[in-house]
Design a binder for these strands. Structure first.
Length: 448
RNA sequence: GCGCCCAUCGUCUAUCGGUCAGGACACUAGGUUUUCAUCCUAGUAAGCCGGGUUCGACUCCCGGUGGGCGCGCCA
């Protein structure tokens, strides 16, 4: 008896996979990609996706760090099927397994010296060449001489990663281990442990790593390598999920943008690539814009409203007004953070861009026309049809081609050359603010 | 240093011996749009190198080069 409850391994046909992060405060993009692939695999197979928190590092494993993992999974909607297993609660089972191995002669105690800490427990490798089949990398083998005994319990009595990891996989009845390929070499040890513990060896699949724009492994200084960063930068979880699923995997037939259901339906391990993949923020952003455009206006508003609330100028705006601005600007937002550029809708007077001003308001012909337009607008009803008629009328009287007054008007009203349709924008700004801004622009930029 | 893995446009990829080597992002040039964004059209751009096997290799084999990972009482 190993002391490990193997009852959950019941149906050998039922797939059980797990995401087993160690909570360190931030969830790395590579880790979450592993979670996505595990989730996809489980859902495709109609199996179970489990979560295990490897919280044996008491220093870093704070409740906040655990919450960060849970938040990341929730944000990406990676739902798991059973309560998470906290590795720290399994310590006695790990140790019992180690004792069993010692009793069977499959592990032994030894004082390796060092800092004089006493005896630790080492696992005895079989002494033969080993091989296992990787669903992604194919058949992998290692010669006996490269497989050395290793510590499974430290001299201070704490279980080492390899032991805890394997024992917990047995406890959770894991059938397929899908993880980053930095674990490939460990797998020989793990296979030996599964066998020594009398458990069925699970199937393995090692995922290629995600590297940075320089083709190097992501490090702290690369930034934006944590999923919280992407959330803060205004990415849609669906877009990130879609994009990440395409890093190292492809459904073929030129399919890229896909729904979750499609990804689940098409996902198979044999279509996972084996070489490292680079993140491309540009492509992610492009996908993101598509996701934002397709969102229901209310859903878009729900996310954008809190972002505006946090700005110095959008804090106390009327929700109904925000909803209108949101609806107008949604289709041109690449990320949710684009809302931070909507300032001119929420203040009395906009910040004027110097280039825009000199380009569109400094020409001699413009001031008199804007002035005339100001009078016409003030004298008529403030609606789209009238505004349109007013602008066209002034253009005609000034000998300008149709549409040539639009940009000067836009700059006078918003301070910038880019934005949604100028008439729609004006209607949102309202009659008073529009007239006031025209006056200000006329006085400040067109006088003298 | 030793071991293992990988190698198609700048990037993500399709291709499972015979294709004008396809798609997407990015880029360039047009078009639509009052600006921007969107959208449409077109274009530039790839099989790391060297040997084999084969009637025929991006595809199979060997070598080289380059890159990644591993070699802890870390996880």
């Amino acid at each position: 008896m190993t002391g490990i409850d193997q009852s959950r391994r019941g149906d050998p046909m039922s797939v059980r996979v797990r995401f087993a992060p160690s909570p360190t405060g931030n969830v790395h993009i590579g880790n979450i990609r592993a979670a996505i692939f595990n989730w996809l695999f489980a859902r495709h197979a109609g199996g179970h996706f489990l979560l295990r928190i490897e919280d044996t590092d008491r220093e870093r494993s704070t409740p906040e760090a655990v919450q960060a993992v849970l938040d990341a999974l929730a944000w990406l909607d990676l739902n798991f099927d059973e309560p998470p297993l906290y590795q720290s609660t399994q310590k006695h089972i790990h140790l019992q397994a180690a004792e069993t191995l010692v009793e069977k002669g499959l592990a032994y105690k030894e004082d390796k010296g060092g800092k004089g800490q006493g005896e630790c427990i080492l696992f005895r490798m079989p002494g033969t060449d080993m091989a296992f089949h990787d669903e992604i990398k194919g058949d992998l083998r290692k010669e006996a001489k490269d497989l050395k005994d290793f510590v499974i319990v430290r001299s201070d009595g704490s279980p080492v990663f390899h032991l805890g990891n394997v024992v917990d996989d047995i406890t959770q009845g894991i059938t397929h281990i899908i993880r980053g390929d930095d674990h490939v070499e460990n797998t020989f040890r793990h296979v030996a442990l599964f066998q020594a513990l009398g458990a069925t060896v699970p199937h393995y699949a090692h995922l290629p790593m995600i590297v940075n724009a320089q083709g190097k492994p992501y490090s702290k200084r690369d930034g934006a390598a944590y999923i919280g960063d992407f959330r803060e930068k205004g990415f849609h979880p669906g877009a990130l999920f879609n994009y990440l699923s395409l890093l190292g995997w492809s459904p073929g037939e030129d399919r890229e943008k896909m729904t979750r259901a499609e990804a689940v339906e098409w996902f198979t391990l044999d279509r996972v690539k084996s070489g490292p993949a680079q993140m491309d923020l540009k492509k992610l952003t492009h996908l993101n814009q598509q996701y934002l455009t397709e969102m229901a206006p209310d859903a878009f508003f729900d996310i954008v409203a809190p972002i505006l609330k946090r700005t110095s100028w959008g804090g106390k705006a009327d929700p109904a007004y925000i909803r209108q601005v949101s609806a107008l600007m949604q289709s041109r937002a690449q990320t949710f953070s684009a809302a931070e550029t909507w300032k001119y809708f929420f203040v009395e007077f906009p910040d004027y861009d110097d280039n825009a001003v000199s380009m569109h308001l400094k020409k001699a012909a413009i001031p008199p026309l804007l002035s005339a337009l100001r009078s016409t607008v003030a004298a008529n009803d403030f609606n789209a049809a009238e505004l349109h008629r007013a602008v066209r009328g002034v253009e005609a009287s000034g000998g300008l081609a149709e549409g040539k007054l639009n940009q000067p008007l836009r700059v006078a009203l918003t301070g910038t050359t880019i934005g949604a349709g100028i008439f729609e924008t004006m209607l949102l700004l309202g009659r008073d603010r529009s007239l006031a801004r025209l006056d200000l622009a006329l006085n400040r930029f067109c006088a003298g």
